[in-house]
Design a protein around this nucleic acid. Structure first.
Lengths: 173, 173
DNA sequence: CACACGATGTTATGATGTTGCAAACGGAGC
DNA sequence: GCTCCGTTTGCAACATCATAACATCGTGTG
């Protein structure tokens, strides 16, 4: 199953899932005649390694460890490229980025963001995307791009907190 | 009809619609025992006057004209208050704020953002919100809050551009 | 009046993202 | 190999977005 869809078990083969993502990225770029340069590959790898939303400057700090000259434009250019090729998604509410499990097909993803552990899952439900497009068109609006971000509790965190997630998350601060 | 739902005709009674929004805000705050101070009222008025997404520093510049001492915290505090009371919404993709036409009821709004004229309409379709919550729960996710932002062309801009919005918007730059 | 608490003033700083231009790289054609 | 040319990267500065920390002020309440 697609590694980006749904929340992952605590112990999955993480090294493997990063490798798969990079392999897929290489395939996709080769087919499209796009250059997945070393820098871009490294940034993509950092995003996948974290397996949770990564912010630009966090990625920059990590990138600097293997590439001292890295600066903000370094990261943002790589992120722009990766987004343009559907290899990552941007989570607007977090100013953060996550890997996309299905870069081969353009799609409007819906993101489930856990407020507790910060894990993110992508739904990519075509029914949702279609409904939104349809609802928009009922308002005379021609939809081109969607951002859908749902905040709440992932299965593991909902489990841990039982019914009183409100009290718990307040206490957790 | 609710002034914030749907795109407005080019010539609506704008002064009236700002006044109504402020009146409603006063009612809501009074009932909740919240203080709609002069500063907060002014910021809310600025948001409604623009009738399109306003960024914090744009509001700050405008506020300075009637209140020289205004600084970033001035604006952000007012915006925090207004959001907390449902009087405005934040558009995450734009780092901008729009007035809410229905502050009386908590709701998950869906925003239609025109890429051309930057107008924004709020759908607040409960069916959409419910569907998203349900889809999320099918993934074991307990949804608490939603951000739905749809980019495209509003009725007026879609009309002007006919079929070739791509060429037009490229040329428009 | 005195107190408490929320609101505001003020300065500084942190966090996020972009522009502009020059240099280096890398593939296409010779 | 060499030139040409478009893409990618280096680099410095800047633009934008948001918050921290602490002092002061205002207002309602006992």
């Amino acid at each position: 199953m697609d590694p980006a869809s749904g929340f992952l078990p605590a112990k999955h083969n993480h090294r493997r899932c990063v490798e798969d993502a990079l392999k897929t990225a290489e395939d996709v770029c080769r087919r499209r005649g796009q250059r997945l340069t070393e820098q871009r590959r490294q940034v993509l790898e950092l995003v996948w390694q974290a397996h949770m939303p990564m912010r630009a400057y966090d990625l920059l700090d990590k990138l600097k460890k293997v590439h001292r000259a890295a600066a903000p434009p370094t990261i943002y250019r790589a992120l722009d490229f990766l987004i343009a090729n559907g290899l990552i998604h941007r989570i607007e509410s977090l100013n953060a980025f996550v890997g996309c499990g299905d870069p081969e097909h353009a799609h409007a993803g819906q993101f489930l963001v856990c407020q507790d552990c910060h894990a993110v899952a992508e739904m990519a439900d075509p029914g949702v995307a279609t409904l939104l497009k349809k609802k928009a068109s009922q308002h005379g609006f021609f939809a081109l791009r969607q951002t859908v971000e749902i905040f709440g509790l992932c299965p593991a965190c909902a489990e841990n907190h039982g019914g009183d997630h409100t009290a718990m998350s307040a206490a957790a601060k």
